[in-house]
Write a protein that binds this DNA or RNA. Structure first.
Length: 1100
RNA sequence: AGUCUCGUAGCUCAGCUGGUUAGAGCACUACACUGAUAAUGUAGGGGUCGGCGGUUCAAGUCCGCCCGAGACUACCA
């Protein structure tokens, strides 16, 4: 017969190793998939990590969440394939390689060939793959590591191209301008990533100018000229980049902002002017004494320039007003110009409340410019200097890009300011300190500059994306509804272009003038086009073995009219790579069409919340545009893992937690359990190792102890579940109770898992194990396991505890896969009750509703609380539990309560060592009652009278309370109003039993009879003796089954006690004899106050 | 700057659609228990539920503003 395995202690990392090799040997992961039917799939997508960095503890977090729901679904009978994947392209990879090679972007193609560079990237990107795979295994994350998708592989790229072609055919891809950070010194655009590098933003002092834009008088603007003082009418706008002023094409005002018209004099020319600026900002540009000065008495040269407000307008009254171009060098040809428009970003926090718009040099400017039909002027070239048409400043660098020393470089901003002053176009010029981004490589200020880019017209499917998003179940919901939803509402087109080297090349070829273009959707198509080009152009090209740069750039195609087409040199955004994985991981549509159909869309994905605009978006956008479908139905976005002080982990601070060390020290399960139960996955986790230790000790330790306890006695009794299952009705109350609780737990946990609420599920399991199973069921049932012979009641106890443990192993398996399997197999090994070799091949236990008995659970709750109250009274009175007491007094206010308590009175009496429970009926008149209003029902009835009523009700007399209980009604009179109240409007409970000390917990109140009679005292002594002898047995190292002989040193009271309890004691301590002797060697033992003896035990 | 989330005991967190003594665990202190023992029980201290205002008979819970922390987006005249 097989025994249950017994262990010397709990060692989670050792369990991990054992289970891991078992999984590997038996291919449990593979079987967990293959044993499930193909047409019952639960689809999961793995968001690909990049293996060019080491995995951190936060990866354990995100992967624990992914893993647990996949395991759960497997245990619900679903087939859950989990293809791993690697994200291999992108800027972080390139920057790291540049760093390693000690080169910059400019060196690529010069110091190192693109070919070599890309080779370096390809190697670097998989640098830590082994480490990742190792972590994946060690943390118990089940994913197919042997057949991952890799974004740099040709098959993957081909699928991505196919998607792009699909979009291209739908007219969703176009080339356009966008304003991007640009470094003239380096001659390259910068990504926002690069802009966010530490130190990129620097405080600099620039020349700022408030320029005067002269309003043109026409039918639209004539209302602005009413009440004007002498001089022209100007709108004034502030800028910290005066070099953008020649490129000005508009002025933006805020719709709701109030603007003031002010009559004053220009400080540089002293000419009278009427100017318009935000009313709130008057104080910024004028001092109070200027308002007091007499406008008419102004004399050029006066220190104080007077001003007066002569009009007021709302922003929308200014819309459409036209003005004379400020610096008339060139006029735009691609749209309207020189008018006032409305823009939502205009504020009155600084400047004049009016923003000068130069669409070529600001993203906001470009956007509102387009919206309002404005054209643009780009009067600065890519080297950062003015073009020739800006005659006065032609050829001058707008910032010091030539590394001239500060003495020789004359900022053009200053000269522009002077020009403005001389032309009565400057209202104010001063130095201004602000934070401005710089190129991290050249240290020079960047410009925002229009660059060519390819876009996906995502905004055209905005509404559909919003619509589809509303069908997705987001955990937590606000990430989807608010964060993602809001982002979709304001969706801009997707900038696909990246002018780098290591990435998927944009498969678009164009003629030089851009009139003909082709988007390639497959290698086969590329081959056809190449052959066509070879024929027409007399070339001998073939499809490159590697679809990356530089090879692909060498391919020349031919247009329908026989002209050469070159590939557009851009790469695509890596987010498009990862968003393509539902298709590209299967090399769809070139292969695996059925597999794809089965696996789209995903039932579940999960990544960090930082992926909201990243992977979640790219999946959703591509799914919407290509398949008019969601790409995922359920998504969990996980929060950050911070250090224990709530600080973000970073190498610099040295607070990074090494996941390998954590797993090695505490085991994967304790780590996972801690992460899942300490905080919701989407809340940030303050990672504290002490928390793992606590989980290990409290949860796993308790569960381990429970199993040890079970296996110890089961082996002694040779229990192996060989007998028929004892019907539940034949088992004692406490068995039925724990089984009822267990089924309640199954129901709740299953429900929580299905709702992606892993934290609630874990906490419920933990509560059951610690409170119900260990601390109540096992504690109360201990005797049943070690006392008496192996028959009915004992077998029932084994069967019950066994079932609880087995069920727990299943419920916990998704979160703690190692320990669960260890426990499951330990149990099943001896009984062979289940046919599965691993818990992960088993199904979640079904709820047996008929076994859930709410009444039973309620009365056990009473038993626990009553016991607790009695223990607390014993404590107060200083009477130890070993001293039996005669009775407790328990007021019962209704018969249900009494019968409920009676059903568990055995448990209570043995738990707290009392002889009887004396139920005090309300009719006895001994109980003093307390009455409280039931606010919930009364509040609705009484409304404003509630406050008075509460006062009245709590002061009702004992007689009235009795009346209410008898009649069930009460008329409450408050002022004019009479309310008919019923019993449910009150909360009546026992308050005290006069003459007794009571303890109260909610509706339960009780008193303890603390009289210790001689008989009770004798029994108490007997219990003390048993205790001491048991301790000796243990100290002497006897087996729990050894028989002994006992000798006691004479003491009168012991003698008396023995007369009554000799057999009882002998039975408890397995003694063949108990003798009282007059002399005995050894230490004196204090039994009770004043009772000393010596005890000697001898093994028979 | 905008959007979103969070703020409850020294620490980590519960607190359902508003209902009157705000809970648990850890930690701390004291006392018990002891055939699960590197476990367990009982008791105790500890809270202006971030602040201010509002709605309501009633606010930790709903609304507004503010403060603090974090995430994301944008980078400003």
């Amino acid at each position: 017969m097989t025994k249950f395995r017994e262990y010397k202690g709990l060692n989670l990392p050792v369990i991990d190793e054992g289970v891991l090799s078992f999984w590997q040997q038996k291919e449990v992961f593979k079987r967990s998939i293959e044993e499930r039917s193909l047409d019952n799939a639960f689809v999961f997508y793995e968001g690909p990590p990049s293996a060019n960095g080491k995995p951190g503890i936060h990866h354990v977090m995100a992967r624990a969440v992914k893993d647990l729901f996949c395991r759960y679904q497997t245990m619900k009978g679903k087939r859950v394939e989990r293809k791993g994947g690697w994200d291999t392209h992108g800027l972080p990879v390139e920057l790291k390689v540049e760093n390693q090679l000690g080169i910059t972007k400019d060196d690529i193609g010069v110091k190192i060939s693109i070919e070599e560079y890309n080779k370096a990237c390809r190697e670097a990107v998989m640098k830590f793959k082994e480490l990742w795979d190792d972590l994946t295994r060690k943390m118990g994350y089940w994913a197919d590591l042997d057949h991952p998708y890799i974004t740099f592989e040709n098959n993957y790229i081909e699928s991505v191209w196919n998607l792009l072609k699909d979009l291209h055919q739908k007219g969703l891809i176009y080339k356009g301008y966008t304003i991007q950070p640009y470094s003239p010194a380096a001659g390259t655009g910068l990504s926002s990533h690069e802009l966010n590098m530490p130190g990129a933003y620097k405080d600099v002092s620039d020349t700022s100018a408030v320029a005067q834009f002269e309003v043109i008088r026409n039918s639209d603007s004539k209302h602005l000229f009413e009440d004007n003082a002498q001089g022209g009418l100007y709108i004034i706008a502030w800028t910290t980049t005066p070099w953008t002023l020649p490129s000005n094409v508009g002025l933006a005002v805020g719709k709701k902002i109030t603007y003031a018209k002010v009559a004053t004099y220009n400080p540089y020319t002293t000419l009278p002017v009427n100017i318009i600026l935000a009313k709130d900002l008057l104080a910024k540009w004028f001092k109070p004494q200027q308002a007091e000065a007499d406008y008419d008495a102004y004399d050029p040269g006066d220190k104080i320039i007077p001003f007066k407000v002569i009009g007021e307008y709302k922003g929308d009254q200014l819309e459409g007003i036209r003005y004379h171009q400020l610096m008339p060098y060139v006029q735009p040809t691609d749209g309207d110009a020189f008018k006032v428009i409305l823009a939502d970003f205009v504020s009155t926090s600084d400047g004049t409340g009016i923003v000068h718009i130069a669409p070529s040099f600001g993203a906001d400017d470009m956007r509102v410019g387009k919206q309002n039909g404005l054209g643009s002027l780009t009067l600065v070239d890519k080297q950062g200097k003015f073009v020739d048409s800006v005659t006065d400043f032609a050829g001058r660098y707008v910032k010091n890009y030539k590394d001239e020393s500060d003495e020789t470089y004359r900022p053009v901003d200053i000269d522009i300011a002077i020009w403005l002053k001389e032309n009565n176009k400057a209202f104010n010029v001063q130095k201004y300190q602000h934070n401005y981004p710089h190129c991290w490589r050249t240290d020079k200020p960047i410009l925002y500059y229009p660059l060519d880019s390819w876009f996906i017209r995502a905004s055209s499917v905005r509404d559909r994306m919003v619509e589809l998003n509303n069908t997705i179940n987001w955990k937590p919901s606000h990430t989807g509804e608010k964060r993602f939803g809001n982002w979709l509402e304001n969706l801009q087109d997707w900038n696909l272009s990246r002018s780098r080297f290591w990435g998927i090349p944009l498969p678009i070829w164009r003629t030089e003038d851009g009139t003909s273009e082709i988007c390639i959707g497959s290698i086969e198509e590329l081959m056809r086009e190449i052959e066509k080009a070879n024929q027409e152009l007399g070339l001998t090209q073939s499809v490159p073995d590697d679809l990356h740069k530089p090879y692909i750039d060498n391919v020349i195609l031919v247009s329908d009219d026989g002209r050469k087409m070159q590939r557009e040199s851009d790469l695509i955004d890596v987010w498009f790579d990862s968003g393509s994985m539902p298709y590209a991981q299967w090399h769809y549509p070139m292969e695996n069409q059925e597999i794809f159909d089965r696996n789209f869309p995903a039932d579940f994905i999960c990544e960090g919340v930082d992926q909201t605009r990243g992977w979640f978006y790219s999946l959703h956008a591509i799914g919407t545009m290509v398949k008019d479908s969601v790409a995922f139905k359920n998504v969990v976005s996980t929060g950050l893992v911070l250090d224990k002080n709530g600080v973000k982990m970073s190498k610099r601070l040295g607070n990074v937690v090494d996941p390998f060390v954590t797993l090695k020290t505490h085991g994967a399960d304790a780590t996972r359990w801690y992460m899942m139960t300490n905080a919701q996955p989407w809340d940030n986790l303050k990672f504290d190792e002490a928390g793992i230790v606590e989980v290990k000790r409290k949860f796993f330790g308790t569960l381990y102890n429970t199993y040890s306890f079970f296996s110890l006695y089961a082996n002694l009794d040779q229990f192996a579940y060989e007998q028929d299952q004892i019907p539940l009705v034949e088992r004692p109350e406490i068995d039925r109770w724990i089984i009822s609780e267990l089924n309640t737990l199954i129901q709740e946990v299953d429900n929580q898992y299905s709702l992606y609420e892993s934290t609630a599920a874990g906490r419920k399991i933990q509560y059951f194990v610690e409170s119900h199973l260990s601390n109540w069921y096992v504690r109360l049932c201990r005797r049943r396991f070690w006392k008496g012979s192996y028959e009915h009641d004992k077998i029932a106890a084994y069967q019950t505890l066994y079932e609880c443990l087995l069920t727990i192993s299943k419920l916990m398996a998704p979160i703690a896969p190692f320990f669960a399997d260890w426990l499951y197999r330990n149990l099943n090994e001896a009984t062979q009750q289940e046919k599965h070799i691993s818990v992960h091949l088993a199904l979640m236990p079904p709820v047996e509703q008929q076994l859930i008995d709410k009444d039973l659970q309620e009365r056990m709750d009473y038993a626990q609380r009553i016991s607790s109250l009695i223990l607390s009274l014993r404590k107060k009175e200083g009477i130890r539990v070993r001293q039996p007491l005669q009775k407790i007094l328990l007021p019962v206010l209704n018969s249900e309560f009494q019968s409920q308590v009676e059903a568990v009175s055995d448990l209570i009496r043995s738990e707290v060592n009392i002889k009887e429970i004396d139920y005090i009926k309300e009719s006895s008149g001994v109980i003093k009652k307390r009455i409280k209003p039931n606010f919930k029902t009364l509040g609705r009835k009484l409304g404003k009278d509630m406050k008075v009523a509460a006062q009245l009700i709590s002061n009702l007399s004992q007689e009235t309370i009795s009346d209410i209980e008898k009649s069930g009604t009460y008329s409450l009179v408050i002022g004019e109003n009479t309310y008919a109240l019923t019993l449910e409007d009150f909360d009546i409970s026992a308050d005290e039993i006069p003459g007794w000390q009571v303890a109260t917990d909610g509706e339960i109140t009780l008193a303890l009879d603390v009289t210790i009679t001689d008989d009770l005292k004798k029994e108490g002594i007997a219990r003390e003796l048993i205790n001491r002898i048991q301790n000796l047995r243990k100290d002497n190292g006897y087996e729990v089954t050894d028989r002994i002989e006992v000798k006691l040193l004479h003491h009168d009271q012991i003698q008396q006690s023995l007369q009554s309890y000799r057999d009882y004691i002998a039975d408890e301590v397995l003694a063949n004899s108990i003798d009282i002797v007059d002399t005995l060697d050894g230490e004196t033992t204090l039994l009770l106050e004043g009772i000393e003896t010596k005890i000697n035990t001898q093994k028979v």
